[in-house]
């Protein structure tokens, strides 16, 4: 019988709650379009680097929480996050071995896919946001990745 993985639920929930809160904290106007998608970053980190992953259901739930929190179409972020979490889980062994900048590039790709799915659904649902500024969080998110991994590993989160 394989060991049942230890899941540190309180830490996990706290981590997700903090990153959720970080997506609605009021920022100055000029900074707001740059705000990275913290929840997506956290979910990716949990999928890629935490010792034992939690997986898709967590990604789906966090996505739903974003939708409820921001008053977006319910299920929009859930779908996008599930898809990128799936890819991250599939590639987890390879990505882990990458150097940090290389990882950032992969994260960039995943966040881009996430944003593209959101963009797509926005278009289908009839409220497209077509300004180029909506893609900025992808860049800032990828730029934040080294910082975040550093921080999370430093906190020694064994989620």
């Amino acid at each position: 019988m394989a060991r049942r993985p230890v899941r540190n639920w309180p830490v996990l929930v706290l981590l997700l709650a903090v990153s959720l809160a970080a997506t609605v904290v009021p920022l100055p106007d000029w900074l707001e379009p740059l705000r990275p998608n913290f929840v997506a970053l956290t979910v990716l980190w949990l999928c890629l680097l935490s010792i034992r992953t939690t997986g898709l259901l967590m990604a789906w739930g966090s996505g739903l929480a974003i939708d409820a929190l921001h008053g977006m179409l319910l299920g929009q972020n859930a779908l996008a996050l599930v898809v990128i979490a799936y890819i991250a889980l599939k590639m987890r062994l390879r990505i882990r071995a990458f150097p940090i900048l290389h990882q950032s590039a992969v994260i960039f790709g995943l966040l881009l896919l996430n944003e593209f799915i959101l963009f797509w659904i926005d278009g289908i649902a009839g409220f497209p946001v077509t300004t180029w500024a909506r893609w900025l969080p992808v860049l800032t998110g990828a730029a934040c990745w080294p910082l975040m991994t550093g921080l999370y590993s430093r906190l020694a989160i064994r989620a």
């Binding site: 319910l74 299920g75 859930a78 779908l79 799936y86 599939k90």
Partner: peptide, 19 residues
């Protein structure tokens, strides 16, 4: 994993349509 992705994605799509 693949099956769970399919289930969750379908659930998300259903939610979106309903919403």
């Amino acid at each position: 994993l693949g099956l769970r992705l399919a289930i969750l994605a379908a659930a998300a799509v259903a939610l979106m349509v309903a919403d």
